[in-house]
Structure formats: C-alpha cells, structure tokens
Design a protein around this nucleic acid. Structure first.
Length: 919
RNA sequence: GGGCGAUUGGCUCAGUGGUUAGAGCACGCGGUUCACAUCCGCGGGGUCACUGGUUCGAAUCCAGUAUCGCCCACCA
C-alpha cells in the first residue's frame, strides 16, 4: 500500500486542505482491494469461521446497459447494510452478479443489428448468440466498473452471472425437480404473443393500456336449415359486436345469453362466416352479457381469452389465423400474408360492400401491450411449458404469514397477498435464443423427457429410443426463471457446497418494489420448493428514483441521470448520502441537484471538522501519542456533553438501522455531526484548547474527547459515506486493537455507559442563542465585543462559570460577568434585556452607546416574546386546570405540563418586569 | 371494477397520540478573527388537503370526501 493516505497516518494534521472526493475515493478504493476486506473470508476480514453470517441479496443488474440512479440507490442501500453487518463482526456477504436479461438483451441487440441492416433471422441462431456474447462482454465491464466506483463492497471473487455454468446447472436441476413433482407441465394454451419480439411473454409482461378504439357491428347471415345456404336480407341476420373485425376469419361460433328473448329462437341455428365461408352454430352461454353491444358475441377461440374458454366448453374448433409476425395466415383467403391491421381495414371495406357492416362507434377499451416492445400482444394458441404456481404460492404466502420472511415496509404485504392469492400459472417458454434452453427432449412417439444432465437423456425414458432420435425443445426459459434461483444458485445449489450451507437462507433481500412479482415472488416460490426453506428472512422494498418533476426516469424521456457523471461531480460519498437521505421506506423520491449539494457540503463539512480536530492537537500530546481515554475527572461540562451527544447519535443510528429506516440514519448523523458536534462541540472545545490557564491534562482531555467523538461519528457514518470516513479515520490516532482500515473496524456501541445529556449545556446554548438573537434584533454590530452580565442561579452557575470563556467567545460577550442573584444584574438604561424561558436565567448586554433606535428594537423584541409567552402560558394553564387531563394523562406528562406552566408564568412575570409593567 | 400510496412553509421532504410541528434549499439582514464562503450568525414564512369521529390530548388513530400517483383486473 503506497498511496497518499499512508503519509497522513504518520502526520495526522496533513489531511489536504481541500476536500477532493475523486482523489480520496480512488485512493481508498485501492486500499480496500489490496487489503481484501470485501469477502467474508478475505485476508483482511475480521470475521472468523464462527462469525454469524449475513447475506444480502441484490438484484443482479441487466447486462445490457449501464447503471442508472436506481441501481446506484440499490447498491448504496445494500452496501450500507453490508458494511454495518461487517462492522458488527458478522461474516457479511454481498454477492455481485449480472443478469443475462434474455428478452431485454435481445431487444437491445436486435436494435443494434437493425442499424447494420442485419436481423436475428438473417444471422441464424449460432451467429446471433456469438454476437450476443461479444456485446455483453463489453457492457459487463462497464457495469462492474460503475459498482466499484460507487464503493459497493461486493465480494468480487464470488461474482456470478445468470448465464454461467453454475446457473445453467441450477436451471436444469430446478426444472427437473419441478417436472418430477408435476409442478412443470407442457400444454397447449392461449399465450400472450408479442409479434415484435416473436415470442410469448408472461402475463406480467403484458401492460394494460387504456385506449379509445372502435367497436363495429357486423351482420352474420343465418343459414337456411333446409338448403344449407345463407339467407339474404337483414331480417335473416344476427348482428355481433367486435373491436377486432380481422378475427372474423377465426370465428367458430356466435354466442348469446340463454335468457335473452331476442335470440332464443336462433339458438341452435347456424350462421355463415364471410370470406372463410364457414358455417358455425349459434349457441347459448352464460358468459354473454345481454346488455353489452348487441347481446351476440362472435367466438374466436384461438385469439381471445374469453372465447377460448367458451370454445373449450362447447368443443369448438380453434383455427389459428395469425402467424409469428401477426400476419393473417392459413385462412385460405385473399387476406393471407397481410398484416393484422391491413386485414382489419380490408375486411371492414369488404363487409361494407356486402352490406353487412351494421355500424361503428368509438369504444373505450384496454389493450395489452408488450412491456418490452410496446406491440399489441395477440393471444395465440401454443404448446408451451408452464409452472404450476398455486402450490408454490401457497408456501410463499405461508412463509410471510408466519413471519419466517418479513416484508418491509408492511404495506406491501397486501399487494403480496393479493397477487399470490390470485396467481395464474407461469408460462416459462420463450421463443428466443439468448437464454437457458429448456431441458426437455421429445421422442418421435411423443414422449417427453426432462433431464438435468447437460448432455440430456441418453435415451427416451418411455420407449428407449436412442438420444439421437430425440429432439430438444427449441425454446428457452423466461429470464426470470434463472433469476428466481439467484439466492441459492449463486451459493452453489444444487450442490451442497460450503457457501450454500453457510450463507443460505440469506438475511436480507433488497430491491425496488417494481419487481416484487417478477422477481421476489418467484424467488420465494422456487426457493421454498427447491431448497425447503424460504430464501431470505427479510424483504426490504425501496421506492423508485424519479426526476425533479416526479417523472419516472427513462431513456426515451431523456431524463436519465448517469451515476458516473454525478460521482465525477460530487463524489460517490455524496451520491450515496443523497440517495439514502432522501429515502423513506417504500416511497418514491425525486432526485435533483439540491439533494446532491446537501450531501457534498456535508462531506466537506466533515472533512474540515476533521482537519480542525487533527490540527488542534495540544503540544502536550505528542504527534505519535497512543490513544488514551481521557480521565473523567479532567472532563468539563462541554466535554461530557460532546460525549453524550455522540452516544445519542449512535443510539439513533442503531434504531434507524434496526428498522430499515435509512433516511433516519442519515438525518441523525447530519444533525449530530453538523448541528451538534461542529456548531457547538468544536466551538466550545476551542476555548479550552487555546486556554493557557487550563492544565495540560485538561487540554489533552478536551482534545481526546474530540478525537473520540469524531472517531465515533466516522464509524457510524462509514456505511453511508465509506470513502471520506475511511480517509479521515486513517489520519486519526488508533485505539489499541483497531485494524488498519475503518471498513473492518468495530461498530461503536451505544450502551448506557456514556453520561446522560448534560442539560446545563443545553441551557448554555440557549443562552448564547438568545444573546445573539437580541443583539441581531437590536441591529448591533455583529463583531463587537459588548459588556454582558449573566444571571445563572442555583446549580447552573457552576456550569456557566466552568465554560464562561466559551460563552464569552460565542456570544461576543466581553467583559462577561456572572451573577448568582438577580439583584446583582446591572440594568442600565438602554441595556438589552434577555429572559430565558427556563432556569431563571437572564442576561443584559450593554451596547457601546444607547440610542432611541436600539432601545426601541429591544423593547419590540421583548413585547413580542411576551405576547408569545402569554399565549403559551394561557394554554398551559388551561391544560393543567382541566381535571380530566390531570386524572387521565400519565403522571409524567401531567408533571411536565405543570413544570412548563410554572416556567412560563415565571418568564411572563420577568418579561413584564423588564418592560416596566409588573403584575 | 378492486387495492395501495401521497396530500405538512415558495420547493424537496422528515415527523405514526403528549410541551411551542422540524430540516435542506430558496428568501431577507449581518459577517473576510487562525476547520470550513461547499462557510458562520440572526430572521421571516405552515389553520399539517377537507369533513366528521375516537381521546384528557390528533399532523399522527378511525370513517368519509377531494385531488394526484401507482399496482392489479379476460367483458366482445
């Protein structure tokens, strides 16, 4: 390790003056890699073989592109949990991975090929797959580089890919098991066909889009039962309504409701379907809504879900009239070969010529479109593989209902329940090339062989025909099938590996709520069925990142933010902080430059605070002095306060982490580090550090207190902002037993050993703020040192006296005189009068020269304070005078209200007195 | 048609029964003292969407309404 941070170790004060995130982050990234600290069993790991495992499951990014802010958020949150677990001594495993993204990848590659004048079909399967391998080899490097840059502490040695050999083996094994248990079956069914992607897609990949279409009325002519010929004239027709006239060619029946008097006489008769000249029956079926349209429905069993069911019920023929490209085919009409929409237009025109187009009107309808290509999906009859989901879903539901797996936030449990309760079987066959081939082989006699062996079966199980005569299913699996095995396939399943035994079931699965069904539910269903145990204990679902206007980020909208550019500008730490800070469980968040700026400024603030602390080392502490815990006796009230506030922050951070409320974690840290440690802790400490009157041990104690607090804040912040904390920590003196790197240092405890909050410092702060306020309101020069008198009665006096010089400095009060009794407080005419709400504390500030102006402003301020205080007092008195409150509220609350009423009364009395109207 | 979520200062958001509802940004005033102008100090700004209920007490719990957003859903 020969990077720049090493030099700062021997010379703590040498943190560079300017905070440059890029430099810091590059240097630190190298140190982590060199130290091998990311792997739970790496050389630099603190966890031994007996350490409690903590495994986090991240959604492997699609290999097709580069990462966007949503990925960055995923990684930031997951890495936060990983780093925290690591610091608490667990064997933390954050496993990196990539998803081959079958359909998405093909969609992208097809687009690239189209620009070259090529196509999937023109290349052929082998050449196409070769091309795909080249493509993903390039994108792979980009994605992994982005994750590294972000500081994700992924165990790179365990990098996995859904198309690697391990995944392939898991896919085969999983399918074999499911088939053996009758949970995977092959059948002819109506599937969702995307003509653009030339494949079937699952129900989840069909997006319902409302559109205003047209509903046409078409007359079908009744057949003369005697002659077998169609009758002419409108009286001898039945009118059906349809939004898809082209499907006329596939009609095999007309249905009416059995109770519909209008059509009762027609049931059992036949009509002739035009163009195909097919005679089909009119039948009665309950599914028909007599009130809708004409009350008569054309039935196209091969191209409509309802009609398919109706067709099965009545044993109707199911002619398929669309080919893979959704062109009309096999109808024996002149329409064959034409696109479905061209046929629609032609048929409407031809029906009009025949005089059988009875009408048309606009119609609000819902069209299913392909999630990937946006093509209108066609229902089509296909023989494909399905996963029987009901039994799997039942087990997944049982796992969440019995709390073996917890969903955070809970609101998603309802969605989860609803979907898994109403789940339909999962069509896993895809007529694509990029993915795992379905391990099913068919023999000429129709026997189906499913094999987990890479080479397939050696002979047909049923009839013994040799392998050479068997034909493997040309289809591949839905990409989510392999993703669904991710938590355990990455750990070695189906083999009983050491990793699988140690890290499965996993601890936390984190992802965006948008893939709860696609991915999370499938992992649960498959995981429980295949491994016998739910694959994770906790599911945490995050919201989505939106642009500043609240719109979803998408490439087509052009509002996608590249995380690399953001990190270039503000640093990975700032990006991570802003993504986590803005998040609230399960809620979407808008991301804009302001949030990033907040985070960047915070990192800069921390950097400078650290520079101060390092540079403030008193001479009596040598540059290489071993870290010592300051003697409690040498601590002043400010030091005790600093320590207690750091402990309070640790508690708040622990609470936030335990509840997966990561936004609370960053809020606690921001507040604790900036508003408490920097604004008051350091400012109060400065005085004693520079005070020649303080003893060397006192000065040392103050400095070590700052170092301790800073050390604690750095540990607490490390999971959120790993780089800057690591860099600063490297410059701090180590405690005995500390490792070289913060990433493997111990998480700070937040137990009760730290002194409770010193409320007297709270009063000191309030006093300083009140004096500053009065001076600013009176428009006195901010920098002027003004004679100030402070009344601090009772036990507050000692505290005030102990840090009087700090008060003087922070309130620009010089000379500052403390008084124990009100009688001692001088109140010359024109002095600013300050009355604190509690503790009987008062102050007077003597301006250099009183003026009408100054006196008037001060009086106006007091008047305003009086009005406010009187208002509060009235409310407080009404409260404590209410017997139902005093009887029913908890005693502590009642006591607090009484104290408050008394304090307000006191404040009001004093303010009145200052204003010259006592009573 | 079901379900879920949101509605808090100009903007972005915290805050799930207990004193006087907070933060950052923006805004106004003032600051070049040796950590930081990516900063420091002070200030203005909110009937917590609406209505009703529960409660000693409601931004917070319940019911309803409105607006916005999301998810699920095979009526031609």
């Amino acid at each position: 390790m020969t990077d720049t941070t090493d030099t700062t170790e021997t010379n703590p004060a040498a943190l560079p003056k300017a905070y440059r995130p890029g430099d810091v982050e590059n240097a630190i990234a190298e140190r982590w890699l060199a130290a091998d600290v990311f792997a739970p069993d790496g050389a630099g790991s603190r966890a031994d073989a007996g350490a409690e495992p903590f495994t986090i499951i991240q959604p492997p990014p699609n290999i097709t592109g580069s990462l966007h802010l949503g990925h960055a958020q995923r990684a930031a949150v997951e890495d936060l949990m990983t780093r925290h677990a690591r610091m608490t001594g667990k064997a933390a495993l954050f496993l990196p991975g990539l998803d081959h993204a079958s359909i998405a990848a093909q969609f992208v590659l097809d687009g690239i090929l189209a620009k070259e004048g090529l196509s999937r079909q023109s290349l052929g399967r082998d050449a196409y797959l070769e091309r795909m391998q080249e493509f993903v080899a390039a994108t792979r490097a980009v994605i992994l580089g982005q994750e590294r840059r972000l500081g994700a502490s992924l165990d790179w040695g365990r990098l996995r890919y859904t198309m690697d050999d391990g995944s392939a083996k898991a896919v085969r094994a999983a399918f074999k098991i499911l088939h053996d248990r009758d949970l995977a079956y092959r059948t002819e069914a109506l599937v969702n066909w995307c003509p653009g992607c030339r494949t079937s897609v699952s129900d989840l990949e069909v997006v319902s889009t409302p559109e205003t279409g047209t509903i046409w009325s078409i007359r079908y002519h009744l057949i003369d039962e005697a002659t077998g010929q169609p009758l002419t004239g409108q009286a001898n027709t039945i009118t059906v309504a349809t939004t898809r006239p082209e499907t006329v060619l596939g009609d095999t029946a007309v249905a009416v409701h059995p109770d519909d008097a209008r059509y009762r006489a027609l049931v059992g008769r036949h009509v002739r379907i035009p163009f195909v000249e097919r005679d089909v029956p009119i039948l009665a079926d309950d599914v028909v809504d007599a009130a809708f349209g004409t009350g008569a429905v054309k039935i196209t069993p091969a191209h409509d879900h309802d009609d398919h069911v109706t067709g099965l019920r009545h044993g109707l023929a199911m002619p398929t009239i669309l080919d893979d490209a959704a062109a009309v085919a096999n109808t024996g009409t002149k329409y064959d070969g034409l696109d479905r929409y061209a046929v629609r237009t032609a048929i409407l025109a031809d029906l009009a010529i025949l005089g059988d187009l009875a009408g048309e009107k606009p119609h609000e309808m819902v069209l299913g479109r392909c999630q990937r290509s946006d093509d209108v999906v066609e229902p089509r009859l296909k023989t494909q593989w399905f996963i029987r989901t009901a039994p799997l879903a039942a087990k997944a539901l049982a796992a969440t209902r019995e709390r073996r797996t917890r969903i955070v936030p809970e609101q998603f449990e309802k969605t989860w329940e609803h979907w898994l309760t109403n789940i339909r079987d999962w069509n896993v066959s895809r007529q694509l090339w990029w993915g795992h081939r379905i391990p099913a082989w068919y023999c000429p006699d129709g026997h189906v062989n499913v094999s987990a062996e890479e080479a397939g079966p050696s002979a047909c199980d049923a009839c013994g025909r040799p392998a050479a005569e068997l034909r493997q299913d040309p289809d591949i699996f839905d990409t989510w099938f392999s993703s669904g095995l991710w938590p355990f396939s990455t750990l070695g399943w189906p083999d009983d590996t050491a990793d699988f035994r140690r890290f499965h079931p996993t601890s936390v699965m984190e992802t965006g709520y948008d893939i709860i069904f696609f991915w999370v539910a499938r992992m649960m269903m498959l995981g429980i069925e295949l491994t016998g145990v739910e694959p994770f204990h906790t599911i945490t679902l995050s919201g989505l990142i939106r642009d500043p206007l609240g719109q979803k980020m998408s490439k087509t909208k052009g509002n996608v933010v590249d995380p690399l550019a953001v990190m270039e500008e503000a640093g990975a730490d700032a990006l991570r902080f802003s993504l986590i800070h803005g998040a609230s469980a399960g809620q979407d968040q808008r991301f804009g430059p302001q949030k990033l700026e907040l985070a960047r400024n915070f990192a800069n603030k921390l950097w400078n605070a650290a520079r101060f602390v390092l540079g403030a080392r008193p001479d009596e502490v040598g540059p290489d002095a071993p870290r010592v815990a300051p003697d409690d006796a040498d601590l002043g009230p400010a030091e005790r306060w600093i320590r207690s506030r750091a402990a309070a922050t640790a508690q708040a951070v622990d609470r936030g982490l335990a509840e997966y409320q990561f936004g609370e974690v960053t809020r606690a840290l921001y507040e604790g580090i900036w508003s408490e440690f920097c604004d008051w802790g350091i400012e109060l400490a400065k005085v004693r550090l520079a005070d020649d009157g303080a003893s060397p041990t006192e000065r040392s104690a103050t400095w070590w207190t700052l170092v301790d607090a800073l050390d604690r804040y750095l540990r607490l912040l490390h999971p959120v902002m790993p780089f800057v904390t690591e860099a600063i920590w490297a410059a701090l003196p180590r405690r005995a037993g500390d490792p070289d790197l913060l990433i493997v240092a111990a998480w700070p405890d937040a137990d009760g050993r730290d002194p409770a909050l010193d409320t007297k410092i709270g009063q000191v702060i309030e006093t300083i703020v009140a004096i500053r306020n009065a001076r600013a309101q009176a428009d006195l020069p901010a920098g002027a040192w003004l004679e100030t008198h402070l009344l601090a009665p009772g036990d507050a006096f000692d505290t005030f006296e102990a840090i009087a010089s700090a008060i003087a400095r922070l309130a620009r009060a010089r000379p500052l005189t403390l008084h124990r009794a009100a009688s001692g407080l001088p109140r010359p005419a024109g002095a600013l009068e300050i009355v604190l709400p509690a503790g009987d504390i008062e102050a007077t500030v003597l301006p250099p020269a009183t003026s009408e102006d100054t006196a008037g402003r001060d009086r106006a301020r007091l008047e305003k304070e009086l009005v406010e205080a009187e208002g509060h007092l009235e409310a407080a008195r009404a409260r404590v005078a209410n017997p139902s409150f005093t009887d029913r509220a908890p005693p502590a609350v009642v006591e607090g209200a009484r104290t408050r009423a008394a304090e307000l009364a006191e404040q009001v009395a004093r303010l009145r007195e200052r204003l010259g109207r006592p009573g």
